[in-house]
Design a protein around this nucleic acid. Structure first.
Lengths: 132, 132
DNA sequence: TTACATTCCGTAAGTACCTACAAAAAAGTA
DNA sequence: TACTTTTTTGTAGGTACTTACGGAATGTAA
């Protein structure tokens, strides 16, 4: 007897252009996706405004949009309290917490390696390429 | 008395809008940045064309551009042989290999978790949001 | 001579992103 | 009444990203 043919159980392949896993990658590594997940990392629940202040430079528009993408991927849970000045909280789901582990590792490595990057930038005058 | 002001030795802070570490994050998590680093992971040297074939869907233009950014950050080394049909090889630097470790972890987690994402997408009809 | 190979850079054109601004909701306060 | 609060959405406008296409280089093959 053959195994059940359930494509939904198959592993993704990021090197294939049409693989849905590329969407997840896109959402997670969008400009604000990583920062949102990292900011929520730690299990704490954050209000929209708190999250916005935690992530420097993000506009309300983009934060809301980014959170919707992550919610759509089941990595962020949105808890809206039906009060009148809206009160909305966000927190990571178990799936989101797994992603956060990897992203936090990347984020901390970048932060800790900044001196080395600055050394590289200084040694090879590559400011022109990096300016943008 | 204030502390010594040596910004070049200070750790980065991704939550600060003006921190240079955001540039590194941007380059690494650009659409093709992660895939290029992951494709080069393993220490092997790859020619431009091989790399292009390994990463499905990338145009020559964008691959060259992405590699320049990563080279500017000291994560990719470009070895050009002065022959006439151009022969160029790429490989990760030690810094790039450190990044690759984190990115590979993220990539493999996404690939392995795809079934769970597909389950989420199916349960909550969020196809509209993810379509793009 | 013509065609081909390989990598990269212009240019133009289209698409997607991002920001700023304003609006909406309903109850509480002055 | 007028104003405040918090979150989200709509719009317009600009910026950045992406792709497609052509060109350059120069030995070798047809």
């Amino acid at each position: 007897m053959k195994k059940a043919n359930t494509p939904s159980r198959r592993r993704g392949d990021l090197m294939s252009p049409a693989c849905p896993s590329r969407d997840v990658l896109k959402h997670l590594t969008s400009r604000w996706g990583i920062l949102a997940v990292v900011a929520l990392q730690g299990g704490s629940t954050l209000r929209f405004g708190e999250l916005r202040r935690a992530i420097g430079g993000v506009s309300e528009r983009m934060l809301a949009h980014t959170l919707q993408l992550l919610e759509g991927d089941g990595m962020v849970e949105r808890i809206a309290h039906p009060v009148v000045p809206p009160h909305v909280e966000y927190r990571l789901t178990p799936l989101g917490r797994e992603a956060a582990t990897r992203l936090r590792g990347l984020a901390e490595w970048i932060e800790g390696s900044l001196p080395r990057f600055q050394k590289v930038w200084k040694e090879q005058g590559s400011a022109d390429r990096l300016a943008r």
